[in-house]
């Protein structure tokens, strides 16, 4: 009973914040709505007794990613209310398609037991940090390694798209400075008296 109450409350707040993310005109508000989304989803994870994932979501996404995101939003010069016109012109089509889609889902699901899902029994271990670690490094080893390749790809892609060495850029090359020897820079000239400049 209490669980149901917590579930439906957090789902309702989650939906409202998700709508807020895509409808608010101010990007800072969008980012804050997204923070609220993350908090509510971590509540859902707590209800599923996945404490580690719930805490990790808050620590990583709210603590690190969203703070970075807010910094980026602060640094970008985004004008408010610029795109209002374009949204309102396609809004009826969007609403129409959404209604069609929801009606289709209701039609398809009416009369069937949707919540008939299967228990996987993965997290039977009460200590779910440990269970997660064991699963990750045994049964899901290949997936784990593949995810690391995706991260590598992300690093390479970000660097190759943004790193830009302009030709003719003046910058300090310390190795060249250190390896300069006397004969490259110093020229000993015999100056006769009376002819020096």
């Amino acid at each position: 009973m209490v669980t149901d109450l917590v579930f439906f409350t957090s789902v309702a707040i989650l939906m409202i914040s998700a709508m807020g993310v895509i409808t608010s005109n101010n990007p800072v508000h969008s980012a804050l709505f997204l923070v609220s989304c993350f908090f509510q989803s971590s509540v859902l994870w707590l209800l599923l007794e996945a404490e580690f994932l719930a805490i990790a979501l808050i620590v990583i996404y709210v603590g690190a990613v969203m703070v970075l995101f807010l910094y980026v939003v602060m640094m970008l010069d985004i004008r408010k209310n610029q795109h209002k016109q374009s949204v309102s012109s396609i809004l009826p089509i969007g609403i129409g398609i959404s209604i069609l889609f929801i009606a289709e889902l209701i039609f398809a699901l009416s009369g069937t037991n949707v919540v008939q899902t299967r228990d996987t029994g993965v997290l039977s271990n009460p200590n779910n940090t440990e269970a997660l670690g064991i699963e990750l490094y045994t049964n899901y080893l290949v997936e784990f390694e593949l995810a690391s390749i995706i991260l590598l790809l992300g690093i390479i892609a970000a660097i190759s798209l943004t790193l830009h060495r302009r030709p003719g850029l003046k910058k300090q090359e310390i190795s060249q400075q250190v390896s300069v020897s006397k004969k490259d820079r110093l020229k000993v000239v015999q100056v006769r008296s009376g002819e020096g400049a």
Binding site: Y140, L146, I149, I150, G154, S160, L161
Partner: peptide, 30 residues
């Protein structure tokens, strides 16, 4: 990886490897 995957997660990761490199390649010409 896509062609020899045996579960949906591996398959998704393989697909994402292809897709992410394609996104970057399309924007490669700066």
């Amino acid at each position: 990886i896509m062609s020899s995957s045996a579960n949906l997660l591996i398959f998704y990761l393989g697909l994402e490897l292809v897709a992410l490199s394609l996104y970057t390649l399309v924007g490669f010409d700066r």
